[in-house]
Amino acid sequence: MTGQAQSHAWSSHKGAAALAAPPLAGKKRQAFDWRILLGFLLPIAIALLWEAAVALGLAQGRLVPPPSRIAATLLALAETGELWTHVWATLWRILIGFVIGAAAGIAIGAVSGTSTTMRRLLDPTLQALRAIPSIAWVPLFILWLGIFEESKVALIAVGVFFPVYLGIAGAILSVDRKLVEVGHVFRLSRTQLARRILLPAVLPEALIALRSGLGLGFMFVVAAEFMGASEGLGYLLVDGQQMGKPDQILAAIIAFALLGKIADSLLVYGTKPLVRWQDTVRERL
């Protein structure tokens, strides 16, 4: 009963908003949606509660430092410039690894998606390789490529490759035969068909594949930096553990959260004009 009442309240709320919106928003861009701020409520509340608990002496805050200490640590790291060195080191590794992994994933995914023979040839091997936990490559990469940048970038590239490969190949295989037939009716050549029908048709799924690839890139950069690095956010984590500085660990974790979210948003908003035509519920949800 309460659920129903709530949903009623919701819909009437939305209805009122919709009624109120048009004259304000008009033809310009939609007015800022304040409901977005709802998402900040929970983390801020938790942070404030913890801060209060430590300030009132209810908790010690040694192993779980209060937000103010984490902020102070972040600020101090930023002021000395140390933070930026680590951030750039990490971002640079992700960027190179992502570009290599995504390019390989797109190329091989495209080949495997368009040619049955190539798929029969490549896919089983790649699926077997995919079943290996990527961290298992670390010792081998270190032996092959040394302990510096190359092995780290290689690990990230491997992590990015598989979701991109799977996404692209799957997207090409699931292109609507009916649209391809439209291309046949207008006698498009193979390259025209690829450019005018296949490419735009796979774009939305390809972008999702790139997003999950980027997410894995962030995951693997930590693993890569754990295995011996003198800079990078992953190094800050290891250093914080060894030196017993939980505030530094949390500062690095927060930096990861922010960077990951920013990178993902950049990818989404940067590619939005390409998929504006999509008929999805995303905008309305």
């Binding site: 037939e181 439209v182 029908i197 735009p200 048709a201 035509w277 999509q278 008929d279």
Partner: peptide, 8 residues
């Protein structure tokens, strides 16, 4: 079906 290309 119309079979229009949704991106055009």
């Amino acid at each position: 079906e119309p079979r229009l290309l949704p991106w055009l």
